[in-house]
């Protein structure tokens, strides 16, 4: 009766109906596993869903199966969402910090000592040293470095690659 009145625009009847179904939805939700979702959020989700499809209620059919079909559908969706979320998470007590431990770094990153890096750079041929300085230390783009040095972009890339290989060899000795 209330739903029929609500479908005809009776806001007060609709409010009474929603208030009456809230405990039913809450009880249904409580019987199911819904992860970390707050009970109030679940109830509100079902109420909004019910509101969205209120035109689908047929006054010639019973109300409760209509309501429960919506509630079950929404709760199942929430369960699926919770399972997906749970799969993507790993429970840990202390979050691992990847920036503090040496074992998480590339060998080249371990060299924090600028002096050691300077010595390693000094062992490079002059052109390779110039390329490393331009591209890595001064953070110039390939185009800027090409304009500054007169070298082609391809030549810059080759020099950079050789320089990095040589540096890695020197620093990991």
């Amino acid at each position: 009766m209330l739903m029929r009145a609500a479908q005809q625009g009776d806001a007060a009847a609709y409010a009474r109906l929603l208030a009456a179904v809230t405990p039913i939805i809450r009880r249904t939700a409580a019987r199911r596993w819904t992860g970390t979702e707050e009970p109030d959020d679940l109830v509100q989700d079902v109420l909004i869903s019910l509101h969205q499809v209120r035109q689908t209620y047929d006054p010639g059919r019973p109300f409760l199966p209509w309501l429960m079909a919506i509630a079950r559908n929404r709760l199942a969706d929430i369960q699926r969402r919770q399972v997906r979320r749970a799969k993507g998470e790993v429970a840990v007590e202390v979050l691992p910090e990847t920036f503090a431990g040496d074992e998480t770094k590339e060998p080249i990153e371990r060299i924090a000592d600028a002096e050691e890096l300077g010595r390693a750079l000094a062992t490079l041929p002059p052109r390779q040293r110039q390329v490393v300085e331009m591209l890595r230390l001064k953070e110039m783009s390939l185009r800027e470095a090409s304009a500054a040095s007169g070298m082609s972009i391809a030549a810059l890339k080759v020099s950079m690659h050789r320089a990095m290989k040589a540096l890695r060899a020197v620093l990991t000795k």
Partner: peptide, 24 residues
């Protein structure tokens, strides 16, 4: 938002109901 407030909001929207879906 509290559930009671949500019910009030939804009820206010229900004053202009959508056309009822006909039978299949």
């Amino acid at each position: 938002m509290k559930t009671e407030d949500l019910i009030r909001t939804l009820a206010a929207e229900a004053r202009s109901p959508p056309r009822r879906l006909r039978s299949p």
